[in-house]
Design a protein around this nucleic acid. Structure first.
Length: 234
DNA sequence: AATCACTAGCGCCCCCTGCTGGC
DNA sequence: GCCAGCAGGGGGCGCTAGTGATT
């Protein structure tokens, strides 16, 4: 460490000792400086001296306020990705983002082969091993592994006037957007090899068209005796 | 020496999205 | 088709630690 001022050096030298003379009277945690202790005690008591001039939020430190203002008001994002257009308020967010380009997964699960790009995802993954279901539906007390899963449960099961998604090709209504995706893939995607109807010579490149076609055979007497002219529907 | 603003860095929790597989 | 499990990408805040500048 080097510094222009002797006072900065004197202060710096102290970080190499364990000396932390300022102790919180509420939790006994110790700090190197009075300012750190004051911020810590303010966090205990909910004292937030730094008020945002554009909304109701308030913070313990000026740094927290500055960050909040970037997120909510100035929208300034100083950390730019060199590969794509992404930018972020915080350096750590850019770091996390860049892993989506590099594929780097530094956080490995010690119970399986999974590895994550950030610590939170690993933490979320770990509950798949514990079997824990931390989220409870306030209406029916059903339990869930992720908050988002619970949220969609509450919407679908207990919500009113829940919108449904209509298939653009066949007028089927489906509750979940992702299930519409499954529907489109399974029934409306183009199949390179046409599938033949099991009752006639017709062939289709789309599974939905095939099932619709098969319905036209419903009232036919499809099952014929090969010894005589007998035929029946079933 | 005390105090301020500022940066850096860890963590926590949430959101939305979309796929999977059992029913 | 409905449903819960589960992973990817990302937003926003809580808090601590250290440094430069000023009082």
């Amino acid at each position: 460490f080097t510094s222009l001022r002797i006072s900065s050096l004197n202060r710096h030298v102290k970080i190499h000792s364990d000396e932390k003379p300022h102790v919180c009277h509420l939790c006994l945690k110790a700090f190197r400086t009075a300012t750190l202790l004051r911020n810590h005690v303010n966090a205990h008591t909910g004292t937030r001296p730094y008020k945002c001039s554009d909304c109701d939020m308030a913070f313990v430190t000026s740094g927290e306020l500055a960050r909040h203002r970037r997120y909510k008001h100035t929208l300034e994002k100083p950390f730019k990705c060199s590969i794509c257009k992404y930018s972020s308020v915080e350096a750590s967010k850019l770091k996390r983002h860049i892993r989506s380009h590099t594929g780097e997964r530094p956080y490995a699960c010690y119970l399986c082969s999974y590895a994550s790009k950030d610590t939170c995802k690993l933490k979320r993954h770990m509950i798949t091993h514990s079997g824990e279901k931390p989220y409870e539906c306030y209406v029916c007390q059903a339990r869930f592994t992720q908050s988002g899963t619970m949220k969609i449960h509450i919407l679908q099961k207990h919500g009113e006037n829940v919108p449904k998604y209509q298939c653009p090709h066949c007028s089927t209504f489906i509750a979940r957007k992702s299930d519409l995706g499954v529907h489109l893939r399974n029934l409306h995607s183009y199949m390179a090899v046409a599938v033949k109807c099991s009752y006639c010579e017709a062939a289709f490149h789309e599974r939905y068209a095939l099932t619709q076609h098969k319905k036209t055979h419903r009232n036919e007497k499809r099952f014929r005796c090969d010894q005589c002219s007998y035929a029946c529907k079933q």
